[in-house]
């Protein structure tokens, strides 16, 4: 990855030990360029939320350094914090307060007077479809509205870096798509965005660069495009016209039966699928339709995490 003079985020040799011996982060190095849309992927417990917690100072690091737009969080705490807006995974606003009050109060914590904050609150509440709900107690908002309220709150001081910890977890498809559109828009306007997500489809459609973290280490840090190039196999589900009792055999195409009228096959990236159709046709099997079994990125993700698991086990047994 390219090095920039003033990266939006620059993390060097970051470690975090919880308690006496649980190493959540084992020396993370990460650079995020200004204007990037960056995904931080990893299974549960990988260390994603710990990294975000350290960036926004809710978690104390054990060692290493974190710099946000050139400001070190240890040396220039106040300036570094002005640059960051954070949307946490869990709802963390006062459920008894009104959305408008929550936003104006949050702006106040950044030193923004209420008169200025009121204008910004109106702008973001309107953009996120919450203006009509501005004066009701936040506990009465739906789950999706609460999540959008947290996005509006994170933007109220107009940060240069927006960090979102699983922003669309548990929201319906329509809302997820509208959230994506909104995030794309503010990224286009210049806000650097880092998000963690379990939805790999989300990373694939939103982000330009990605780091995959597992067991406190970054195991892959590249562009989404490069990552997808690494895919060497795809799994397809094939629906067939007539029911069959025995799974057909085709050389170089390992088929398995899912049920009497559908098959699963794993195909090398450089092998043509036409040969498979031809071979099936010769055996009297007509293909009705075909679809990807899973998201391509998802397959690669599991592959990488699995490899890391094997190498971690290897290291453990060497010790």
């Amino acid at each position: 990855m390219k090095q920039f003079e003033n990266n939006a985020l620059s993390i060097t040799a970051l470690t975090k030990v919880y308690g006496k011996d649980f190493e959540a982060l084992k020396g993370i190095d990460l650079q995020v360029a200004p204007g990037d849309f960056f995904a931080l992927l990893g299974p549960n417990g990988a260390g994603k939320s710990t990294i975000i917690g350290i960036i926004c100072s809710l978690v104390r690091k054990s060692s290493g350094s974190v710099t946000i737009f050139g400001k070190n969080i240890d040396e220039d705490f106040s300036a570094a914090k002005q640059f960051v807006g954070v949307v946490p995974q869990e709802f963390n606003f006062n459920q008894f307060e009104k959305p408008l009050d929550i936003l104006i109060t949050q702006a106040g914590y950044y030193g923004i007077p209420a008169t200025v904050a009121a204008g910004r609150a109106e702008k973001y509440l309107k953009q996120l479809g919450l203006w009509d709900k501005r004066n009701i107690a936040s506990r009465n908002l739906s789950g999706g509205m609460k999540r959008r309220l947290m996005v509006a709150r994170a933007l109220i001081h107009e940060p240069k870096l927006l960090v979102l910890d699983e922003p669309t977890a548990g929201v319906d498809i329509e809302l997820r798509r509208s959230m994506w559109a909104f995030l794309k828009k503010i990224n286009k306007q210049g806000t650097t965005i880092i998000l963690t997500t379990h939805y790999l489809e989300e990373a694939e459609s939103l982000c330009r660069n990605v780091a995959i973290i597992d067991r406190g280490r970054i195991i892959q840090n590249t562009s989404i495009r490069e990552l997808i190039k690494k895919l060497n196999k795809e799994t397809f589900i094939i629906d067939i016209k007539d029911k069959i009792d025995v799974c057909p055999e085709v050389v170089n195409y390992p088929l398995s039966m899912l049920d009497a009228s559908s098959l699963e096959v794993s195909v090398d990236k450089n092998r043509s699928i036409n040969d498979l159709f031809k071979a099936l046709n010769e055996q009297g099997i007509q293909v009705l339709s075909m679809r990807n079994k899973a998201n391509r990125l998802e397959e690669l993700f599991f592959d990488l995490v699995e490899k890391n698991l094997v190498s971690a086990d290897g290291e453990a047994s060497d010790e």
């Binding site: 926004c56 100072s57 809710l58 705490f77 106040s78 300036a79 914090k81 002005q82 960051v84 954070v86 946490p88 869990e90 709802f91 963390n92 606003f93 006062n94 109060t105 949050q106 914590y109 950044y110 030193g111 709150r153």
Partner: peptide, 10 residues
């Protein structure tokens, strides 16, 4: 957890 609103601010 809304104390976090203050803790993340400068």
């Amino acid at each position: 957890r809304n104390i976090e609103e203050l803790l993340v601010s400068p």
